[in-house]
Amino acid sequence: MKLSKELIDLQHRLGHQFARPVLLLQAVTHSSMSSPGREDNQRLEFLGDRVLGLVMAEALLAEDAKATEGQLAPRFNALVRKEMCAEIARQADIGAALKLGRSEMLSGGRRKTALLGDAMEAVIAAVYLDAGFDTARDLILRLWGNRIRNVKEDARDAKTSLQEWAQARGMKPPSYEQRARSGPDHAPVFTIAAVLENGAEAEATAGSKRIAEQAAAKALLEHLEQGGTD
């Protein structure tokens, strides 16, 4: 199989030459471009998420032999969350090689956190299937680099932090309400509100419910820190 220039360049940035380049093509193919003869990256994303999790668990244990499970869990979550995967994807410029349908391309799909995070996980799976676990581990450790050593002990995601804020004040955990949904079925856009028992709330919009919930929680935390409803 002959690779496009974008995929050849991506191989160089990843530092891995694929023996089965069709795996790399699948890893960067969004569902908006799938067809009977071309698989999208959703199954690879599922596998890559698990490979990434195992590598990060091993790396964190090796990095700090005295850390408790309670210390390791938030560090792990910070390193494997979709936003971090998207950050790494931007570092490797995976967006430049994404295969997107026209509507997704016009809506800025190459820059979307959800798409980039999914593609990063899919690329990890592609490397794993192409060359085995050790090669996939080397890729992950190289791309994540000092982030593993520098991840903070209190690196909780926004939803966890908001829940802890509410519980510390005797409130019920925040709820997340879908306020709107737009876009085609293959590329939906969700508006989600994070709502506290005392009526404080904030909205955010993103291409997945999970990311919109995180963004809404972050926005509400920032509002509260600035003296919003307490």
Rank of each mutant, 00 (worst) to 15 (best):
K2I: 14
L3R: 03
S4R: 12
Q11T: 11
R13Q: 05
R13W: 04
Q17K: 15
A19M: 09
A19D: 12
T29R: 14
S31G: 15
S32E: 06
M33S: 15
S34G: 08
G37Q: 11
D40P: 01
Q42I: 14
Q42G: 13
D49G: 09
A57N: 06
A59Q: 00
E63K: 12
D64G: 07
D64L: 08
A65S: 08
Q71W: 14
L72N: 05
N77R: 15
N77K: 14
L79R: 11
K82F: 02
A89Y: 08
R90F: 07
Q91G: 01
D93C: 08
I94C: 07
A96N: 05
K99Q: 12
K99A: 13
L100C: 04
G101M: 11
R102M: 14
R102C: 11
R102K: 14
S103E: 15
M105K: 11
G109Y: 05
G109K: 10
G109C: 13
L115A: 15
G117K: 00
G117C: 11
D118E: 13
A119M: 08
A119P: 09
M120T: 13
A122N: 11
V123D: 15
A126D: 10
L129I: 06
L129E: 13
T135N: 06
A136V: 07
R137V: 03
I140R: 07
R142K: 13
L143P: 01
N146C: 02
R147Q: 09
R149C: 02
V151D: 02
A155K: 04
R156Y: 10
T160E: 06
L162K: 05
L162H: 04
E164Y: 10
A168W: 04
A168G: 01
G170I: 04
A180Q: 01
G183Q: 05
H186P: 02
P188Q: 05
P188K: 00
V189S: 05
I192G: 03
L196N: 03
E203R: 03
S208K: 03
K218R: 10
L221S: 09
Q226I: 00
G227H: 11
G227I: 14
G227Y: 09
G228D: 02
